[in-house]
Simulated scan of single mutants.
Amino acid sequence: MRKEDVQSKLDIIPENLEKIEILRAKSFEEFTSDFRNIDSALHRFQTSIQALVDIGGYIIAWLGLRTPGTSGEVIDILVEHSLLKTEQRDRYVSMIQFRNRIVHFYNDIDLKILYRILQEELIDIRELYRTLIQIIEEHPE
């Protein structure tokens, strides 16, 4: 597996997390008082989570595993093949569901939930990012 094949996707995540950290430092009132903060957070979450799904899909294709029908199935397939831990599954699927909410229900995002995710759940993105890199490095060509 060649890390270079997904390097552009990998590069998006640390860049997004760096910018999300700036937003994370704001109080709820400060964060919600400027639509640019909200728009930026939503965009950064959406593109980070989508990049993770894309990288997971690349790993699945490279290893010749069954084709996922949904983004959530990417996680399920990686868990089925012990590439991700079972106890991580629900957190990662919830993360993907949040991305779907941003994409499909963009006009109905609860700002309190967005802020809570901003404050408490970046660890899931970081953790999945590191795990996917590790999988790629452990499965050379």
Score class of each variant (00 low, 15 high):
83 L>R: 01
17 L>W: 10
20 I>A: 04
102 I>V: 10
37 N>C: 04
123 I>P: 08
118 L>K: 06
91 R>E: 07
69 G>S: 09
10 L>N: 04
130 R>K: 15
12 I>L: 15
126 R>G: 09
7 Q>S: 07
112 K>Y: 15
123 I>A: 12
129 Y>M: 13
22 I>T: 09
33 S>F: 07
42 L>I: 11
84 L>G: 03
121 E>G: 06
104 H>E: 04
100 N>M: 02
6 V>S: 01
38 I>D: 03
79 V>S: 01
100 N>C: 03
94 S>A: 15
86 T>H: 09
134 Q>P: 14
112 K>F: 14
16 N>K: 02
124 D>F: 13
24 R>K: 15
110 D>W: 10
78 L>H: 06
45 F>K: 04
26 K>H: 10
23 L>D: 04
46 Q>A: 15
64 G>N: 04
26 K>T: 04
109 I>M: 08
47 T>H: 08
122 L>S: 07
101 R>E: 11
5 D>E: 11
78 L>C: 11
11 D>L: 14
120 E>I: 02
10 L>W: 06
17 L>T: 03
129 Y>L: 13
93 V>I: 15
114 L>Y: 14
30 E>W: 07
134 Q>D: 14
87 E>N: 14
60 I>F: 00
69 G>L: 02
79 V>F: 08
129 Y>S: 11
4 E>K: 07
61 A>G: 12
75 I>Y: 01
91 R>G: 10
32 T>I: 05
111 L>A: 09
41 A>K: 05
34 D>Y: 08
66 R>H: 04
127 E>P: 15
113 I>K: 13
96 I>A: 02
72 G>Q: 03
36 R>P: 01
61 A>R: 09
139 H>M: 11
103 V>K: 06
119 Q>H: 12
17 L>D: 05
85 K>I: 12
37 N>S: 04
50 Q>T: 11
98 F>I: 00
56 G>C: 08
128 L>K: 08
89 R>D: 08
29 E>I: 12
5 D>I: 02
104 H>W: 06
36 R>M: 12
103 V>W: 11
60 I>W: 00
84 L>N: 05
63 L>C: 04
72 G>W: 00
76 D>S: 10
42 L>C: 09
74 V>P: 00
8 S>R: 13
80 E>K: 08
42 L>N: 05
38 I>H: 02
129 Y>H: 15
41 A>W: 02
90 D>T: 09
63 L>D: 00
14 P>A: 05
20 I>K: 01
110 D>K: 09
95 M>V: 08
11 D>E: 12
131 T>F: 09
55 I>R: 01
118 L>E: 01
86 T>S: 13
135 I>W: 05
91 R>I: 12
79 V>Y: 00
112 K>P: 08
141 E>I: 15
20 I>E: 03
48 S>E: 05
68 P>R: 02
35 F>I: 11
